[in-house]
């Protein structure tokens, strides 16, 4: 088993160039991968760059590639992923590396905007609250996808993102689907136009890599299938022109 120390390989570098650097980190009970990275930065090498905020799985800023898989590091216990006492930590795939473990999330969030991921309502503060029954099918579908924390783990695990840089990706499309099911939103026509085609839902292979990895156990593939149905219906009516 792991013993008292853990051998950690950490990716160091700017942009595309870099290499793995090894560190020995004392093993602790209930230690998370983020704890390990933080230990290195506080006690061994203060120049190590990485990103985190909440440390409790809310903010979505701490995702990295851990032993080859994208994960949220603050909620990933070392004991779960480093059974043989070895840990390899790298930046998220499919995003430009800024330095060491921090990646540039600009593309990821720009794609949310391109997928019309912004709520657009018709009511003002003078109107009464919208009444949405929790049991209505639309509310249920919206609820199924709403807990996304924007961590980018699904985006890093999607092969279509890797080879088609225009592809909006699982998180942005999942977001669009929650809004399509929001009865208060009025921007569906332009949203369906934005998410159709081979940069959008039609590029998805439905192999569920995103589902496998989503830290919140959401099902972006199902959301994307919903968008495929909705855009097909809109196309039949000639609404995507």
């Amino acid at each position: 088993m792991s013993g008292d120390t853990l051998t950690v390989s950490v990716w160091r570098g700017d942009g595309d160039v870099g290499r793995y650097q090894e560190f020995e980190v004392p093993r602790q009970e209930s230690q998370t991968v983020l704890d390990v990275v933080t230990y290195i930065q506080r006690h061994i090498d203060p120049t190590l760059s990485y990103r985190f905020a909440c440390r409790v799985g809310v903010c979505g800023s701490c995702a990295m590639t851990v032993n080859g898989k994208p994960r949220w590091t603050c909620r990933t216990h070392v004991s779960k992923v480093a059974g043989d006492g070895r840990l390899e930590v790298a930046p998220l795939r499919n995003l430009q590396v800024i330095k060491d473990l921090s990646v540039d999330m600009t593309d990821f969030f720009d794609k949310w905007a391109r997928a019309e991921g912004r709520f657009q309502g018709a009511q003002t503060r003078d109107d009464d609250f919208a009444q949405v029954s929790p049991d209505s099918p639309k509310r249920r579908r919206a609820s199924a996808g709403i807990e996304c924390i924007g961590c980018g783990v699904c985006y890093a695990s999607c092969d279509v993102v890797a080879w088609n840089q225009d592809y909006l990706g699982p998180a942005a499309l999942n977001r669009a689907w929650t809004l399509v099911n929001d009865v208060r939103d009025i921007a569906d026509k332009q949203r369906l136009k934005a998410v159709a085609g081979d940069a959008g839902c039609h590029a998805c292979h439905s192999q569920q890599g995103c589902v496998e990895r989503c830290v919140k156990h959401l099902n972006p593939t199902q959301s994307i299938a919903g968008l495929k149905r909705a855009t097909a219906l809109a196309a039949l009516k000639g609404e995507l022109e």
């Binding site: 159709a196 085609g197 097909a232 809109a234 196309a235 039949l236 995507l240």
Partner: peptide, 14 residues
């Protein structure tokens, strides 16, 4: 890249 005709794409999918 030329702008793909979204409507045609969705119809082909269907």
């Amino acid at each position: 890249m030329s702008a793909p005709n979204i409507q045609t794409e969705a119809r082909l999918w269907l």
